[in-house]
Computed example of a mutant assay.
Amino acid sequence: MLRLTFVSLLSVFPVMSQACDTALILTIDVSNSIDMAEYRLQTDGLADALRDAEIIETMVAGENYLAVVQWSGVDKQTISIPWTQMRTALDVEAFAQKARLMERAFVLSDTAPAEAIYFSLGLFDQVTGCNRNVIDVSGDGTPNGGSDVRAARNAAERAGVTINGIAIESMGLAITNFFRGAVITRDGFVMTARTHREYPQTIRAKILREISRIFG
């Protein structure tokens, strides 16, 4: 009589490990409405978030990929930190340090989020094997340049890419409502930061929500 133990079954049918849970592009608005102090609040906030113990643990467990894109006007998008896989806590710490030291890419430029989305969509060809592809868009204004944001959002949905957002508000909820109606995908979400000084705590909560697969 053939007896198959759990160990012998594993030798016949090896468990396939998932190489990557989430590929996440963090995009930072550096358009004309962002002054240097506000830029530093964004980069320092991102760096501090990535040094959070819970984020480090979750990043490494999912072997997630991260990249950072800076964007502003129609022809103003650049990869500030290329795709990096978070296999160890040291990988996350090194990425955080790069984010903190990152130089601003553009100044005195318009706000064209559609082009930022299209640019980011093209980067997912460089990573494969991830369960989810996510674009994280932050911004403090509505478009004053570029193509239709809803069309870019729809292109992301067709590609199976999720777009989430951080709306940085000076008053009211105008940016949040714009993100909700035109930027985020149907499976995405938007979080609100009341002024740039709330950005650091908001980006931490947002990243943790994205990589922990907690939605609602």
Rank of each mutant, 00 (worst) to 15 (best):
residue 201 Q to V: 14
residue 193 A to E: 03
residue 125 D to I: 06
residue 185 T to W: 00
residue 164 N to H: 02
residue 185 T to G: 02
residue 206 K to G: 07
residue 175 I to P: 01
residue 149 V to R: 05
residue 161 V to G: 01
residue 140 D to N: 15
residue 191 M to K: 12
residue 121 L to G: 08
residue 169 E to T: 10
residue 127 V to F: 08
residue 148 D to N: 15
residue 208 L to T: 04
residue 188 G to Y: 03
residue 152 A to N: 05
residue 142 T to C: 01
residue 177 N to C: 00
residue 105 A to D: 02
residue 209 R to D: 11
residue 138 S to D: 09
residue 100 R to P: 00
residue 157 E to W: 02
residue 202 T to H: 02
residue 145 G to K: 12
residue 97 Q to G: 12
residue 136 D to H: 13
residue 195 T to N: 11
residue 209 R to A: 14
residue 177 N to F: 00
residue 137 V to E: 07
residue 192 T to E: 10
residue 107 V to N: 12
residue 143 P to L: 05
residue 186 R to K: 12
residue 155 A to T: 11
residue 114 A to W: 11
residue 93 E to H: 13
residue 183 V to K: 04
residue 111 T to C: 09
residue 91 D to T: 03
residue 150 R to V: 09
residue 197 R to V: 09
residue 143 P to Q: 05
residue 150 R to Y: 05
residue 117 I to H: 07
residue 145 G to A: 15
residue 145 G to V: 00
residue 196 H to P: 04
residue 92 V to A: 13
residue 129 G to K: 11
residue 186 R to I: 00
residue 165 G to M: 04
residue 187 D to E: 12
residue 130 C to P: 04
residue 151 A to M: 09
residue 173 L to N: 12
residue 152 A to I: 08
residue 191 M to T: 12
residue 164 N to A: 03
residue 156 A to I: 01
residue 154 N to S: 10
residue 184 I to Q: 08
residue 126 Q to P: 03
residue 118 Y to N: 15
residue 201 Q to E: 12
residue 103 E to I: 05
residue 206 K to Q: 09
residue 177 N to D: 14
residue 177 N to E: 06
residue 144 N to D: 15
residue 176 T to I: 00
residue 196 H to N: 07
residue 164 N to D: 09
residue 154 N to A: 12
residue 170 S to H: 08
residue 124 F to H: 12
residue 194 R to P: 00
residue 160 G to T: 03
residue 198 E to G: 10
residue 155 A to K: 11
residue 193 A to K: 09
residue 180 R to Q: 13
residue 145 G to M: 08
residue 162 T to E: 13
residue 161 V to K: 09
residue 114 A to S: 15
residue 133 N to F: 10
residue 103 E to T: 14
residue 167 A to N: 03
residue 184 I to D: 01
residue 160 G to A: 03
residue 128 T to W: 01
residue 174 A to T: 13
residue 165 G to C: 11
residue 102 M to R: 04
residue 172 G to F: 05
residue 191 M to P: 00
residue 209 R to W: 00
residue 208 L to V: 02
residue 135 I to H: 11
residue 161 V to L: 02
residue 161 V to N: 04
residue 125 D to L: 11
residue 202 T to Q: 05
residue 98 K to E: 09
residue 133 N to L: 02
residue 156 A to D: 01
residue 118 Y to P: 01
residue 143 P to I: 07
residue 130 C to E: 07
residue 130 C to S: 09
residue 108 L to H: 12
residue 209 R to K: 15
residue 172 G to E: 09
residue 181 G to P: 00
residue 209 R to G: 11
residue 93 E to A: 14
residue 126 Q to G: 08
residue 98 K to G: 02
residue 102 M to P: 07
residue 146 G to Y: 02
residue 150 R to M: 05
residue 94 A to K: 10
residue 94 A to H: 06
residue 102 M to L: 15
residue 123 L to Y: 02
residue 146 G to L: 03
residue 148 D to V: 08
residue 166 I to E: 05
residue 117 I to R: 09
residue 91 D to G: 08
residue 172 G to L: 06
residue 194 R to L: 09
